[in-house]
């Protein structure tokens, strides 16, 4: 295998029922930067049933080419069909770099494809770059429970592949003047030949809170101590029309549900404003919030690690400053009289 034959940056575009997952668009943004550095095309890979119409929409997010396989057998994700489809495309068109969203299905697919085409795959990356001198893809990821970051290289095999965590890369602004082209391929599999059958898809009731979509999050840490502290933080959140976040310790203390947990074993969030109160700043927490636009930390310990990731820090007793802040905000936002304890 000659690795020079491999060019272009590919992004797997995950969809369900024709609706494209945001992570695919985020990766087009990240992929555009990689492709520009390498001076190659950025290509999307879109598989599904009746998805062809969605392909053109990807140009606006940076794609130059979209590879499409439209086939009823691809209606829902299954490893055996998607692995075949992607494997065939890779062998035929030879991408240099191929990135996938680190969703359940994205990880499943990427792992199977890596084995299928015998190449390296870096898992759950949060930073992507190119070493131009060596023309190498540098994919970095947290490992050992977030205790360390590592850059993983794949020197002698192509494509260089990685899965990328959702919400880590920014979704680019759409530019509807961009154009591109579609390349369609056939799958060549029939339903009768397949081993696995999807019997049903059960959607869980919509989560009470979806922090991944929030613009403002106010997060409570163990420093808020108990229900009273929680109520105090909630009042601030309500005043700002913000959603409530929490550290794991607060969730484990039973003060709020797990859907609110931010961090490695909770959700990864990127709000415009993240106010974090009484959180020490353990790496398992900060991996989930460090890409927020503005981070304000309140903690009574000047040495707290949270100040390393915050943009603004306040050393203060939360029980003193938070009620004052809430009161002043109410005045500023002219929201006095609005019930906030709902």
């Amino acid at each position: 295998m000659s690795i020079e034959e491999y060019k272009d940056v590919w992004v797997f575009i995950e969809q369900r029922e024709g609706e494209i997952f945001d992570v695919g668009l985020e990766l087009l943004g990240a992929g555009r930067e990689l492709a520009d550095k390498l001076e190659v095309n950025l290509c999307g890979v879109l598989l599904g049933n009746n998805v062809k119409n969605s392909a053109e929409g990807l140009y606006a997010y940076g794609a130059d080419i979209v590879y499409v396989i439209d086939d009823p057998v691809l209606e829902n994700y299954r490893t055996e069909t998607y692995m075949k489809a992607v494997g065939d495309l890779v062998r035929k068109y030879k991408p240099e770099i191929f990135i996938y969203g680190a969703t359940s299905n994205g990880k499943d697919l990427a792992s199977a494809v890596a084995t299928e085409v015998m190449t390296g795959l870096t898992a759950d990356t949060t930073m992507l770059d190119i070493n131009l001198e060596k023309r190498l893809f540098e994919a970095s990821r947290p490992a050992f429970g977030g205790n360390i970051m590592a850059t993983i290289l794949c020197k002698k095999h192509r494509p260089q592949m990685a899965t990328v965590r959702p919400k880590v890369m920014k979704k680019p602004e759409a530019d509807f003047s961009r154009t591109g082209k579609i390349i369609e391929e056939d799958l060549g599999l029939k339903e009768e030949d397949l081993q696995t059958k999807i019997i049903d898809i059960v959607k869980s009731a919509k989560k009470s809170v979806n922090l991944e979509e929030s613009d403002i999050i106010v997060t409570a840490g163990k420093g808020i101590k108990d229900e009273k502290g929680m109520a105090m933080v909630k009042e601030l959140a309500d005043t700002l029309n913000a959603d409530l976040g929490a550290s794991r310790d607060v969730v484990e203390a039973g003060l709020i549900g797990h859907a609110h947990q931010v961090g490695q074993t909770g959700v990864t969030v990127t709000p415009k404003l993240y106010i974090v109160i009484g959180v020490s700043g353990a790496v398992q927490h900060t991996v989930g919030m460090q890409n927020s636009d503005v981070i304000i930390a309140i903690n009574n310990d000047p040495e707290a690690a949270i100040f390393n990731v915050a943009h603004y820090g306040i050393v203060a007793d939360a029980f003193e400053i938070v009620p004052k802040l809430t009161a002043e905000l109410k005045k500023a936002l002219d929201k006095e009289g609005v019930t906030t304890n709902g």
Binding site: M118, T119, G120, L121, T122, E138, P142, G146, N147, I148, M149, A150, T151, I152, L153, C154, K155, K156, H157, V283, T286, V287, Q290, I295, A297, A305, F307, N308, V309, A310, H311, Y312, G313, I314, V315, A316, E320, I321, K324
Partner: peptide, 24 residues
């Protein structure tokens, strides 16, 4: 193994916060 682990570093942003001082 096609992949190798290159550099490793502890995950922290060192820039630090702008501290807001003064009375409450």
């Amino acid at each position: 193994s096609p992949t190798i682990v290159g550099t490793m570093w502890p995950p922290e942003k060192s820039s630090g916060a702008e501290m807001i001082e003064g009375s409450t």
